[in-house]
Each structure stands twice: as C-alpha cells, then as structure tokens.
Nucleic acid binder design. Structure first.
Lengths: 189, 189
DNA sequence: CCATCTCTCTACCAAGTGGTAGACAGGCTC
DNA sequence: GAGCCTGTCTACCACTTGGTAGAGAGATGG
C-alpha cells in the first residue's frame, strides 16, 4: 500500500484533472483516499500547497518518462520520434497527467507559478540541448519558445482526445495515427 | 443597453469560459452584471438552466457565423477554407465562445446533454450536406463523426492558444498560419 | 516508565454556495 | 381606481467550503 501522502497526491491528481481544481474539494479528495480532510491538511498545509504538490509530482513523472525515452536511443529512430511516441503512450496510459497541466493554468497565478517553477529546470535543460551547447541567449530563448509551443500542442491534443470521448466519439486508431503525424510535423518544423 | 437577460448571458459566458462553470458562482455573474443573484434566478430558474442558456446562445452564435461564411461564397475559395477562416476570425474575436464548449463538457451530464441538444440540429444539417442528399445512414453517421472530430480539433486549437497565452508565450502570426494550415489539412483529409 | 514525535481523528468556525419566500415599484388592462 | 404582470430587490435557509484547535493512538528512544 502506497503511503498516505502518495495516495492523496494520486486522488487529487485524478480529481483536479477530471473535474477541475476549484470544483474538487478537499473533502472529495479525502473521501477518495478514505481519510479525513484534516489528514490532507496535515500533509499539505493548504489547498494551494496540495495543488503545487500535485503539479510538481506530475511534472516529475512526465519529465522522467521523457528523459528515459531520450536516454534509450534505438537505431533509426530519431529522439523526436521517441519523445512523441513516449508522450502518446503516456497520454494513453495516464491521460490525467496531461490534462492536469492545462487545468492548473486556469486556477490563478499561484498554481501557474508553481507549474512554471516545476518546469523551469527541465525546460532550460531541454532548450540548451535543442539550441546546442555553445548557443547564445537569443537562440536559447527561441528554443524555449518552440518547446513551449510543442508542449502546448501536446496538451491540446490530450484535451482533444478527452473532448472526443466526452462527445461519445472515442478516438480510434486512425485518429491517433493522424495526431502522431501532426505532432511529428509540428516538431520537425 | 442590452436587456438584462442578454447581459447575464454575456457575463456568464465570460466567467464560465475563463474560470470554469463550477468555479463561477451566481454571485460572481451577478456582480459582473451589476445586479443581484436573485435577478439571475428570475431569468434562469437555476444554475443548470443558466449553463444551458449560455450553451444554447454560444452554439447559436457560432452556428450563425458558420452559416454566413458558407452562404457567402467567394470565387476561388472553397467552403472549407471559408469555414476555417471564419472560425479563426471568431476565435480571435471571441475566444471564450470556443473555450466554453470545452468547459461545459466537464461539468456533468446535464450540461453535456444541453450541448448535445443545442448542437444536434446543426450537426444533422451539416452531416447531410457533407454526405450528400441521397446518402445512406452509414455515410451520414461517418460524416457526423468527421464533423465532430473537426469541431474537437478546432476547440483544442482554441484551448492551445489560451494555454500559450497563459504560459506567457502569446501566439504570434506564424503560429496562427501553421494552425490554419493544420486545420485545412485535417478537414481535407 | 516517561517523553516525544508522527499521524489521524473529532469538533468547530467564518465565509460562501445555490435556492426559496416574499415585499415592492412600475406599467398594463379592465 | 382595482387588479394583475413584470422585474428587481432584501432577507433568509440549509449546505459546503477551506481552515483552526486540540485530543488521542501508537511507535520510538532515553
């Protein structure tokens, strides 16, 4: 059995992604965990802190998966393809992870701030890798922008899949193939 | 000055799209309008009814704009291009309109139901136009699916633009051009 | 055996939620 | 003028929200 803290994080992630941050109360999360609200407030001093914790955990999980994808190269498969396929696999297995990132940008500056904070070191590293080791600040800024655009595109794709499901038109394999091609094209651009 | 009812609809649309349905209270909407909450409940018997009203109005406005785009053909511009450009124009002028449609699918069956109800007649008409006048139910169902997929793609694009703005990377003209090309490619497929 | 620390609990609170009841002002028709 | 309808209001209700205060159970270490 995972620790109480981890179970709280998992339940909060599910609730925040599925129903939105403001629409998910501490009591909702507590009920899902099978614990009292005050236990949540023991582990995370406030709801804002819980949101920050969930964001940090989600970014870490996402980043680790991408790091693994990049670190295990296969012959004939460029890193871009590896990253896209890993994201799609992750989107199929843990759609909440991506949807959450969109959801937290809507709750206010505090949550967006904690997202920016969690993501900054990985974004810097990726921008440096993309722009090259001896790149100037301008190139690096442009790389940051491209990465953010690509990330937003990925998240929007996850939102699109969720939306289709909600509309009763579950995304099928053909849809997934098209999206994969679109993502690769967007990244190659 | 627009009628109280219309002003309530406009304020509710803005709130629902910007902060989410559940996170926008009747008092919030009332304050924005400059009226008491009970006036809202006079015009719309409940919050659910208000959501349904906002959805209906948004779908109507969106549908009318698309109808106009299709109805005023220009030589050398296929209807698909006209529709895409009209949606992009609308997305630039009234982004809330598109974001709202995504937001209401998250609030529960009642709101999703009222969305489906509002959209059904237009969807049927468009599917018939797309599949041809003497098409069978199978073709028509496939046309419905394609239209829903295209709509989801459009809404996801609006979400993507909003997300980029929130991340501090406002979508620029190059981004818009790329998205336009992607939408056209998705529709031509 | 006691003290301390960790973790979860019960019992509250003030503020805010959607919603009901009913008053009141102004215009309409008879 | 009497009665009714429309639109807005004040006053209130039961319930939920995030958060505080503090008790108690159990382990750990001196």
């Amino acid at each position: 059995m995972p620790s109480t803290c981890d179970r709280i994080l998992a339940a909060a992630l599910a609730g925040f992604a599925r129903r939105g941050v403001e629409a998910t109360s501490l009591d909702d999360v507590a009920d899902a965990v099978g614990v009292r609200k005050q236990t949540i407030l023991y582990w995370f001093g406030s709801k804002d802190a819980l949101v920050a914790g969930v964001v940090t955990a989600a970014v870490a999980e996402l980043g680790d998966a991408l790091d693994r994808a990049v670190a295990s190269p296969r012959p004939g498969r460029p890193p871009t393809v590896a990253v896209v396929d890993e994201v799609l696999r992750l989107g199929a297995r843990r759609p909440d992870l991506l949807v959450l990132l969109r959801e937290v940008t809507r709750v206010g500056p505090s949550a967006t701030g904690s997202l920016a904070e969690s993501i900054a070191p990985r974004l810097d590293g990726a921008a440096r890798a993309l722009a090259g080791p001896d790149s100037g600040p301008v190139e690096r800024e442009r790389a940051r922008r491209r990465l953010l655009e690509a990330g937003a595109h990925v998240i929007a794709t996850a939102v699109e899949a969720e939306l289709l499901t909600e509309l009763g038109v579950a995304p099928d394999r053909a849809w997934l193939r098209r999206r994969r091609a679109d993502l690769l094209a967007a990244l190659a651009r």
